[in-house]
Design a protein around this nucleic acid. Structure first.
Lengths: 185, 185
DNA sequence: AAGTTTGTTAAGAAAAAATTTAACAAAATG
DNA sequence: CATTTTGTTAAATTTTTTCTTAACAAACTT
């Protein structure tokens, strides 16, 4: 009856793993990561550590592809190199704490967005202010400049807020407001 | 001196606008939106409302491209249709409050991630539990199953947290913890 | 230091995505 | 109801991205 032999159990275990690997790989893909990198991270999630040759074997892609995927995953903080004395192969390990990957990915993304857009806004405001403060310019143009200026100025509230959000995630302060909880359902 | 005529002022104003449009379009692109959709949203950000023909003119792309871009922007909550009586052209308006676009985009993305991954985790845990509770299976396999089970179980803390984050953004509760502030610098 | 193993980079091939062209459908006007 | 205007969808093209092949560089062994 319900009892399994070892071969069936191994298949069941692999099925369970593949289920989660598929889901993670699909959502990673939503995060601007290539399919290869997504599958690689999802696979590494179930492994302690891997070297490039083990990745080839598991994913079935070339060494070059693994090399670039691993670097991309390192850049967004999903994978770290681990130094193993005695082996000349590079070995890597996946960050398994999703709070850490969340922090790494979004803080990086948001900081980039804030600084890029805020720079543009500052520059634009300077130009617009010159128009607004110039008496000789037609009212129609000055009014348009004023409208844009006010809108851009309002947007700064958002960018400052996003910056604070990043800081509170980085510091862990946010978990005082929204604690990590083990919900039982 | 330093005084501008109207033509120079108009150029200055357009330069200021283009600066911000460029920055927004570039970051939108980071958010999984096509270049066309990114440029379109950034352009609409400075307009009250637009119809498809005005978009063509401004962006210099085909009507089909605008149609699909607009729909994509509607899906992620960046653009809304606005009903203008008397005109048979469809008119649209950009959401100009970045708190709203933030909420719409990330809540949608995170909900999708949580439900997809949590579904896979639940299913995998059920399978793994069957292995763990089966006395007849080899210890080696059971131990691996147990390790995976514990890791997946731990990941649920993150998914529940992400769900709470979404709820607190949707409800506005998060702004009690991280207020919207007009910082002067 | 020569040879071997391992990892990276650059150029090319394959695959995927974005955009346009063109055919179609829907709605409004006369 | 025929005609015109507007918007959508499907097929084809262009562009971009991803992946592989192959040449190269770096590091370890002996």
């Amino acid at each position: 009856m319900g009892s399994l032999n070892d071969k069936e159990a191994r298949e069941k275990l692999d099925f369970a793993k593949d289920q989660v690997i598929g889901a993670i790989a699909e959502t990673m893909d939503l995060y601007g990561v290539t399919p290869a990198a997504g599958r690689l991270y999802a696979t590494m999630y179930f492994e302690d550590k891997m070297n490039l040759d083990e990745m080839l074997e598991e994913i079935g892609m070339t060494k070059a592809s693994m090399s670039t995927s691993v670097r991309k995953l390192q850049n967004i903080g999903y994978v770290k190199r681990v130094y193993t004395r005695g082996s000349r192969k590079h070995t890597y390990t996946a960050e398994k704490n999703f709070f850490n990957t969340f922090m790494s990915f979004y803080c990086q993304q948001w900081e980039r967005e804030v600084s890029m857009n805020l720079d543009a806004v500052q520059l634009a405001e300077k130009e617009l202010a010159e128009i607004i403060n110039d008496e000789s310019i037609a009212d129609e143009i000055k009014e348009e400049a004023k409208e844009h200026y006010d809108m851009l100025n309002e947007s700064k509230v958002y960018y400052h807020w996003l910056r604070k959000l990043v800081a509170s995630i980085r510091s862990g302060e946010i978990f005082e407001f929204l604690p990590k909880e083990n919900e039982e359902t």
